[in-house]
Simulated assay, not measured.
Amino acid sequence: MRNRSPNVLGVFAASLAAVLAMPVWAQSSDSAAPASDFTWSANVSLVSQYRYRGMMQTNNEPAVQGGFDLAHASGFYIGNWNSSISWLDDSDPDVSSTLEMDFYGGYRGTLWQDLTFDVGALHYYYPGSFPAGYTSPDTTELYLGLGYGPITAKYSHSLTNLFGVPDSKNSQYYDVSGKFETGVWGLVLNAHVGYQKVRNLDDGSYTDWSLGVSKDWGQGFSTSLAYIDTNADRDVYTNTKGKYVGRSTALLTLSKSF
């Protein structure tokens, strides 16, 4: 494949090395200075495959993922999240892009008692090589989320074309998710349903849903297993390799947070 983007494992190896160095820095800093209003966090994951809004992003192959967040005590935050991908190559053999980089920032807080909010902007960036006339997959969305107890509802609105779909500006995604303590072996039940409205793409809109469990093992390690499915139109969402990208699947995730 020509003009590949930078080696994904190399990117994450360098990122992980930086993350592992952070606790040492934080410990020495805490002894010399008062506590900061800023909080750093990071995460690294290995997933059996990458699914986003129910859709295949790595053609049923494993993916490496990770990111960083910087939050302020006031509620403002910024962050970056990254993943290996293949969906752009899978949808067009003339495209070369193997990395997704997400950049986001926003503000979160409490409206009343257990009612919380989260508002911000998210930019999806796909470095790589694209043929002339190809609609850029880079996408910018604004989002607004409301949470109450274990339930979260979120609305996302695209300010650009949506992931390379021509003339799809102002597409929307509606998402309702829940996390429920089961009281059994420390397992958490995770449920989700979402609706992707794609502007000006016939039969392009669809619903996705998932149901699964997760467990925190301590020391920042966690695992999750989920069933994911969609009702996306097979004729619209079949890639050039003949795979229906909205098919049902089981997804296993192994994560480490710092």
Score class of each variant (00 low, 15 high):
96 S>P: 05
95 V>P: 10
38 F>M: 13
218 G>T: 02
104 Y>Q: 04
199 R>W: 08
213 V>M: 10
130 F>G: 13
229 D>W: 06
59 N>E: 13
118 D>G: 09
116 T>L: 07
115 L>S: 06
160 T>F: 13
96 S>L: 02
177 S>F: 12
21 A>D: 14
63 A>D: 05
194 G>R: 01
19 V>G: 13
188 V>I: 15
107 Y>V: 14
142 L>M: 15
48 S>R: 01
176 V>Q: 02
36 S>I: 08
78 I>M: 04
211 L>W: 10
245 V>M: 03
54 G>A: 06
183 G>Q: 07
73 A>K: 09
195 Y>C: 12
89 D>G: 05
178 G>V: 14
173 Y>V: 05
104 Y>E: 04
229 D>C: 07
248 S>V: 02
8 V>E: 02
110 T>K: 08
79 G>Y: 00
152 T>D: 03
193 V>E: 12
167 D>H: 02
246 G>K: 00
87 W>I: 04
127 P>H: 04
51 R>M: 12
167 D>L: 01
90 D>M: 10
215 K>A: 10
48 S>D: 09
183 G>I: 09
45 S>V: 05
231 N>M: 04
179 K>D: 05
25 W>K: 07
210 S>Q: 12
238 T>L: 00
159 L>I: 11
106 G>S: 13
144 L>Q: 03
41 S>G: 07
170 N>E: 11
208 D>I: 04
142 L>V: 15
61 E>M: 01
247 R>C: 06
194 G>C: 13
154 K>I: 07
189 L>H: 06
225 L>K: 00
213 V>E: 01
44 V>N: 08
169 K>A: 12
246 G>L: 01
17 A>M: 13
88 L>G: 09
5 S>H: 06
128 G>L: 03
98 T>R: 00
195 Y>P: 12
248 S>I: 05
240 T>R: 15
3 N>C: 03
207 T>M: 10
12 F>C: 05
205 S>R: 02
62 P>T: 07
49 Q>A: 08
49 Q>Y: 04
250 A>P: 01
120 G>C: 10
84 S>M: 00
186 G>Q: 03
244 Y>K: 01
179 K>Q: 12
212 G>T: 01
217 W>K: 01
47 V>M: 06
74 S>E: 02
236 V>A: 05
225 L>H: 02
151 I>S: 05
182 T>Y: 04
79 G>I: 03
203 D>Y: 02
189 L>E: 12
233 D>Q: 00
164 G>Y: 04
50 Y>E: 11
103 F>M: 07
13 A>I: 07
114 D>M: 07
113 Q>R: 11
193 V>R: 05
91 S>Y: 08
172 Q>M: 14
40 W>H: 13
25 W>M: 13
6 P>D: 08
145 G>K: 01
41 S>F: 02
53 R>V: 15
246 G>W: 00
201 L>V: 08
146 L>S: 07
178 G>M: 14
71 A>T: 10
207 T>P: 06
88 L>P: 11
240 T>G: 14
166 P>G: 05
33 A>N: 08
200 N>Q: 02
165 V>T: 15
20 L>R: 13
73 A>L: 06
39 T>V: 15
40 W>I: 12
114 D>N: 12
204 G>R: 03
175 D>S: 08
55 M>R: 02
155 Y>L: 12
256 K>S: 15
209 W>V: 04
23 P>M: 07
168 S>D: 10
115 L>N: 05
43 N>I: 14
241 K>Y: 14
69 D>N: 07
256 K>H: 15
38 F>T: 11
118 D>R: 04
